[in-house]
């Protein structure tokens, strides 16, 4: 057991800042957690629950109040693509928000609450690297959840209802092949919209030691934004709300695709996410870790 240091920066043999906490090891750290497994299991389960509801539920004659929702409910069983669309529609508002907030808000805060964060920093994992790896893995898990949800719904929906054109009330039927592309486009836009939640949750995650606070805070602010968006008296200010363009993906269903709101929504989401992440990095690379 002699002196092992040889590097010019005084590091121990084999230590390289760029090799600490690899994406793979962080992925495994998170994969073994019960909350990761439960969240992913739930997104597999949800389409099955919806399918079961459609199978066993009676055809209630109460109207759904009109609007997009009722039309999507009516069309949900018209094919696998429509079933997937419906599943996404009912998940987009809350479930996916919570799942993304969970993956992105919990990642740093939970390490802080366990006390393991200070040991990672003492390894030392450079702080910016720690954040980057954690963020990438959290986003990857969020993407996996989103794709799993859509994939499961598409699979069981197609098995049950068949491979039929994508139908909607905003435009003519879209052939199944192109419908799949449209569905991927919708997934892409949903993912972009969720970047806001991811950014906010991540910022809260580096600011608090309470994982629940980070996740709940992000979801709460998202809900507040949605509520404010309902108040038309706010006028043009609503355009600045992060949730204002959250329904713009409906434009992908029309022919030709209406991309105006999607572009605006993307600008909004990317800008917010960038601001939140920048603040998170700025804060975390400077703060005193006292947990």
């Amino acid at each position: 057991m002699t002196t092992t240091a040889t590097a010019v920066d005084g590091a121990a043999t084999g230590y390289r800042p760029g090799r600490t906490l690899t994406i793979r090891s962080e992925w495994r750290r998170q994969a073994s957690r019960r909350r990761t497994q439960l969240a992913l299991a739930f997104v597999v389960l949800l389409p099955l629950i919806i399918l079961a509801a459609f199978q066993f539920g009676g055809t209630g004659d109460d109207d759904n109040g009109g609007g997009e929702f009722s039309s999507l409910v009516e069309l949900a069983t018209s094919g696998g693509l429509n079933f997937t669309l419906f599943t996404l529609f009912v998940s987009a508002g809350f479930l996916l928000t919570v799942v993304v907030a969970l993956f992105c808000g919990d990642t740093i805060a939970s390490e802080a609450s366990w006390g393991s964060l200070r040991y990672l920093l003492a390894v030392p994992v450079p702080r910016a690297r720690l954040l980057a790896v954690k963020l990438v893995v959290a986003l990857a898990y969020s993407a996996v959840a989103l794709l799993t949800l859509a994939g499961t719904a598409l699979l069981i929906g197609t098995l049950r209802y068949g491979w039929d054109p994508l139908r909607s009330t905003v435009a003519a039927d879209i052939p199944a092949g192109e419908g799949l592309l449209r569905l991927l486009g919708i997934l892409g836009y949903l993912a972009i919209g969720l970047l806001v939640v991811a950014g906010l949750a991540f910022l809260l995650s580096v600011s608090t030691d309470a994982p629940l606070g980070a996740v709940g805070g992000a979801v709460l602010l998202f809900i507040v934004s949605s509520i404010l968006d309902q108040i038309t008296a706010l006028g043009g200010l609503r355009n600045l709300l992060p949730t204002h363009y959250s329904d713009a993906w409906l434009g992908i269903l029309s022919t030709p695709v209406q991309s105006d709101d999607i572009v605006k929504g993307t600008i909004s989401a990317v800008a917010y996410a960038t601001i939140f992440w920048s603040l998170a990095f700025w804060r975390f690379t400077r703060k005193d870790v006292v947990s």
Binding site: A7, G10, Y15, P17, R118, A122, P124
Partner: peptide, 20 residues
């Protein structure tokens, strides 16, 4: 903070911190 030389240092500070 983050000095590579920290890799030559083993520490237990403020109690254990493990993935439960």
């Amino acid at each position: 903070p983050g000095s590579p030389v920290l890799s030559r240092l083993g520490a237990l500070v403020e109690g254990p911190g493990f993935l439960p």
